[in-house]
């Protein structure tokens, strides 16, 4: 998949409490959650985010709580993919499970808010449009690639259970 879009830039250790604060966790409705996405780190995000935008960040993105509501809120905001130097492991799994593409790369160091990048998710290649620089992302483990190809965890469960 090729994703081209403008970026929102965030620092290290963006935790799931700022991605979607617990005061909004009395629902799991994606549209409701999207209204408050990133609210405690960036109030402008939910108002100005456009379909196809990309989030880039530093280390340990999605740390803290296991709330799947965090990637759900990001995806429902229209964000096409998240690229960080590293992810918290629970967030990483959750994003995969709900079909939000995520890649590990240092590209954030090269970017300012609303710069544009082009991402090839299969090749793990990220191109910065303003200067043509190319970054590689780490590859997705085979097992997870297979999970995606077999239609995610839900279809995998169907296969195991024969239903």
């Amino acid at each position: 998949m090729i994703i081209k879009g403008r970026v929102w830039v965030y620092p290290d250790n963006v935790d799931t409490d700022v991605i979607i604060p617990a005061r909004y966790l009395n629902t799991s409705d994606p549209e409701e959650l999207a209204k408050h996405c990133m609210e405690d780190i960036d109030e402008s995000f939910a108002k100005e985010v456009k379909k196809g935008d990309i989030i880039v960040a530093g280390h340990n993105f999605g740390s803290g709580s296991s709330r799947e509501h965090a990637p759900i809120a990001i995806k429902a905001s229209g964000v096409a993919c998240v690229i960080a130097k590293s992810f918290s492991r629970i967030f990483y799994r959750n994003a995969f499970n709900i079909g939000l593409p995520i890649l590990e790369s240092d590209v954030v160091d090269e970017l300012e808010k609303f710069d544009e990048i082009e991402v090839d998710t299969e090749e793990g290649r990220i191109r910065v449009l303003k200067n043509g620089k190319v970054f590689k992302s780490s590859v997705i483990p085979d097992f997870m690639q297979n999970l995606i190809e077999s239609g995610g965890l839900f279809n995998y469960a169907k296969k195991i259970l024969n239903v």
Binding site: G64, S65, S66, R67, E68, I90, R93, N94, N97, I98, L153, F154, Y156, A157
Partner: peptide, 25 residues
């Protein structure tokens, strides 16, 4: 389906937190 599931390792279990979909699975 809670990140602090790691608590239970105190009793010599392997315990880890996951998201809701993983726990649904």
């Amino acid at each position: 389906a809670d990140s602090h599931t790691c608590t239970h390792g105190a009793l010599g279990a392997f315990a880890t937190g996951m998201g809701s979909t993983d726990v649904g699975f």
